[in-house]
């Protein structure tokens, strides 16, 4: 067994700072936020996705791991630092860690219900970069008019999946893109134009 990657130096204050970055990202979809804490990433995970997990998942939130991110190292890390149970199926997950290799990307996760739209999954998607990809125009709550996002590594089909997800509002999944030590959020309320 390889040595376990370290978690936060100071879990209370580091997770507070990371949460504020995540909250900032959710409040300003399309805006790129840097992770304001030091953390070692296990396996194929990015620093941003790792910090997100350390901040938001715990024994009350089943986590689904996409096969290409799943490894003993990642599982040990999740179990030791967060206590989150690994979800056996996508539908049971409160959070999920996936990559664009999953096709279709958003299928099978909890979308909530009309009375309880909050009972939906939050997906962290590992992408190669948050800049330099094809430009998309984002509009919706949190955005002053519109904002351009150039997320790299996504197939065009993702955006039609996203339009279908958007049409489910107030149900639907929420997405956080992670690359390196940066993240960008795409809550279900956001409309995207190609």
């Amino acid at each position: 067994m390889t040595a376990l990657a370290a978690g936060f130096d100071d879990s209370s204050h580091d997770s507070q700072r990371v949460f504020r970055a995540v909250l900032d990202a959710f409040s300003h979809p399309g805006r790129i936020l840097a992770i304001p804490a030091k953390v070692e990433a296990p396996g194929a995970l990015s620093i941003a996705a790792t910090a997100f997990l350390l901040t938001l998942v715990d024994r009350e939130t089943p986590l689904w791991l996409a096969p290409d991110l799943d490894s003993a190292e990642v599982r040990d890390f999740v179990r030791f630092h967060t206590g989150a149970p690994i979800a056996p199926v996508t539908a049971a997950a409160a959070f999920a860690l996936i990559t664009p290799a999953r096709q279709p990307m958003l299928d099978g996760f909890a979308i909530g219900s009309d009375p309880y739209p909050d009972r939906s999954a939050t997906l962290v998607i590992e992408v190669p970069a948050l800049r330099g990809g094809p430009n998309r125009t984002l509009r919706g709550p949190g955005i002053d008019g519109s904002i351009i996002a150039g997320i790299a590594g996504l197939a065009d089909s993702f955006w039609s999946e996203w339009a279908a997800n958007r049409a489910l509002f107030p149900c639907g999944v929420d997405v956080v893109f992670a690359a390196g030590s940066e993240l960008l959020a795409l809550p279900r309320s956001i409309a995207v134009q190609c």
Binding site: L23, F26, T61, S120, T122
Partner: peptide, 14 residues
């Protein structure tokens, strides 16, 4: 705090 933070993110999303 994590539980409340998760609720806040869902609140912002909807």
């Amino acid at each position: 705090k994590r539980m409340i933070r998760r609720a806040i993110l869902k609140a912002v999303a909807v």
